[in-house]
Amino acid sequence: MEILEETKKAKAQEDIDKPPFFKSWAGMYWLVLGNLAFLIVLFYIITKIYE
């Protein structure tokens, strides 16, 4: 019974620690890094257009 309880707790904690929208945290990290890459490209385009 105790083991079952511990497993349930561990599962609940795992659910709490899951990121929203993505299956793993790697997806969230790539979103942030992708956003950075997107902004740099966007800023480069702005720089070139208004140069």
Binding site: I40, F43, Y44, I46, T47, Y50, E51
Partner: peptide, 8 residues
């Protein structure tokens, strides 16, 4: 010269 956002 004010829209100089990125300089590689």
């Amino acid at each position: 010269g004010k829209m100089n956002v990125v300089d590689f």
